[in-house]
């Protein structure tokens, strides 16, 4: 384990008490609603906020130990952090932003600039080093911020809502790139997000935080399949289906074809929210393009809805109202048709 932490910190009425372990090369997503204490947790890991209790240990070095009165200030922690709106220094060029870390950590100017230039190349904005951050698009700024965080070869990478400042179209491309860079990164990564798609697409493991406490942890698919609270069900209840896109058609790896509304090419992930899946006892009239036969494998009530686990060529989760569930006479083993509108299917590159 490179990162092992238990963090207790009070923020007004909320007390955050979260334990985390992240291995080398592993990406952990901390998923939760706004105000759940995710960013507070990240600030403690970064050393920007001293915790009220607990320990933070990275690669055997103690960064925080409240009982032992240890607190390593932020600037002495070998970490990289990507902030929500990037926070590139507006008075420095993009290259000097990336060179800032190596410079403050003692590298000579020329060496720092060489390292920065190499990272700009790596994130695909080699030609933009002379620009000011204000002249970058959202996607370019995100790449520069990632380069700035990774240039020092940190032991720990912290990402605070790294994609939330981007528009939907840029997000798709940047998310796929970020996934690649995270896969190459040798240290531990903690990613904080309120977007389940980011968590599913980027993380090896997900920790769901609600009101300052961990309510669920596990592999993304596992958390999505067996949500333990209504909040988690709503938040991460996505069916993720790998496939290969060609225009508006995605051929799924597990068999079956999905029609989508946004054109894509190459390997993709298709995400379907359970509430957008409708169930019918027989193939519905008007031949909707996304209709698949399935068998109800399991059903769990969540509030006023029932989450049905569907087996078939296209495995899906479906949320139906308790009334509809009863009217359709559904039970494990029932044969149904699952229907999804093309516009309800999210598709993104993997």
């Amino acid at each position: 384990m490179t990162l092992a932490a238990r963090v207790v910190v009070g923020r007004g009425p909320l007390t955050v008490d979260v334990a985390l372990e992240v291995a080398d090369g592993e990406v952990l997503a901390v998923l939760g609603p706004n105000g759940a204490g995710k960013s507070t947790l990240l600030r403690v890991l970064a050393g920007l906020l001293p915790p009220d209790g607990g320990r933070v240990v990275v690669d055997g070095a103690t960064w925080d130990d409240v009982a032992g009165r240890v607190h390593l200030p932020a600037h002495r922690r070998p970490l990289g952090m990507v902030f929500q709106d990037h926070l590139l220094f507006p008075h420095l060029s993009v290259l000097d932003n990336v060179a800032f870390g190596p410079r403050t950590r003692g590298a000579p100017k020329s060496a720092a600039r060489r390292a920065a230039a190499a990272w700009l190349e790596r994130v695909g904005i080699a030609g933009l080093g002379d620009r000011r951050p204000g002249q970058l698009s959202g996607g370019q700024a995100q790449r520069a911020a990632l380069a700035r965080a990774l240039v020092g070869d940190p032991a720990l990478l912290l990402l605070d809502e790294p994609l939330s400042a981007l528009d939907a179209r840029t997000r798709l491309a940047v998310r796929a790139e970020l996934r690649r860079h995270l896969a190459d990164f040798a240290g531990s990564t903690v990613l904080v997000t309120h977007d389940p798609v980011d968590a599913m697409a980027l993380a090896d493991r997900v920790v769901v935080v609600e009101d300052g406490a961990v309510v669920q942890a596990g592999a993304p698919a596992e958390v999505a399949r067996h949500p333990r609270t209504d909040y988690v069900a709503r938040l991460v209840g996505l069916s993720l289906l790998p496939g290969t896109a060609e225009g508006l058609t995605v051929r799924l790896d597990g068999g079956g074809v999905v029609t989508v509304a946004e054109p894509a090419q190459g390997p993709v992930l298709v995400a379907v929210r359970p509430e957008s899946v409708a169930l019918y006892p027989s193939r519905p009239e008007g031949s909707p393009r996304n209709a698949w036969p399935a068998v109800v494998a399991g059903a769990t009530p969540h509030g006023s809805t029932v989450r049905c686990e569907l087996d078939g060529e296209v495995p899906l989760l479906a949320d139906v109202t308790a009334t509809a569930f009863a009217e359709l006479g559904l039970a494990p083993g029932s044969r149904v048709w699952a229907v999804v509108k093309a516009s309800e299917v999210a598709v993104y590159a993997r």
């Binding site: 970064a46 200030p73 600037h75 002495r76 926070l87 220094f89 800032f100 020092g152």
Partner: peptide
């Protein structure tokens, strides 16, 4: 921005000189 500088290894004096003052 000063938080960002701290995560990049800048102590408070360096942060003042290289980030706060230019801003």
């Amino acid at each position: 921005y000063e938080d960002a500088a701290a995560t990049l290894g800048a102590d408070r004096w360096t942060t003042f000189r290289r980030v706060t003052l230019p801003l």
